[in-house]
Amino acid sequence: MKHIFYKEKIKLNRILLAVIIINAAVLIYTFFRVRVGIMLNEPSGIWLDIILRNGIFYSKVETALYVSALLLGVMQFYPEFERKRFRLSCHLPLNEYKMIFYTSLFGIIVLTVLWLIDMAGVVLLASQFFPIDIYRAIPLVMFYWYINSLIIYTFASSLTLEASWNVKLRLALMMAGCIWAFKMEVYNSSLSYAVTAFLFAVFYCFSIYFPALRFRKGL
């Protein structure tokens, strides 16, 4: 596992740097946007606006996370597909299922860390301007973003790894409907629903095996 992670790290060095910069830049931008809003308006009015309209004042972070998931999904598997490295990797002295699992796991771990950093950043930012009632509701909203980012990552990596454009299109048709299935735009939604959505996302992540095994067989 360590070796695969190391291989992925070397392969994605620049992409990792890019996604970290994108997410950090969005967090900094969000901080200044909120600060300006609070400075120019009555803070209680801003609080109330967030409460009454379910205002997601950090929504740019969502976009950044999805862009990161897409970039990771494509860039992690594009070189494998383009230079047929993946087939070579499957001949490494490691069970091919484990190899696929660890390769995919690397991307998921990167996304998880990125999401945790984003969440910590947003909560820290919110704690500077808003009461606990508002910022303690943020992690659940962002949890859905994490679920969606996992789905986007798997969707992108599955399509990238699939060699045939014909099957690529069919897979896109079959998997695309799940991308926005767990979008949530309100605070304080049900925790049980979030857990169900997360379990589905985990289930969805394993769909990478289908194009991976086809690719390994040279279809």
Partner: peptide
């Protein structure tokens, strides 16, 4: 399994 996993995801999606 991978085939039926995709099928189940597609059923949900469709």
């Amino acid at each position: 399994y991978s085939k039926y996993l995709i099928v189940l995801i597609a059923v949900f999606s469709f």
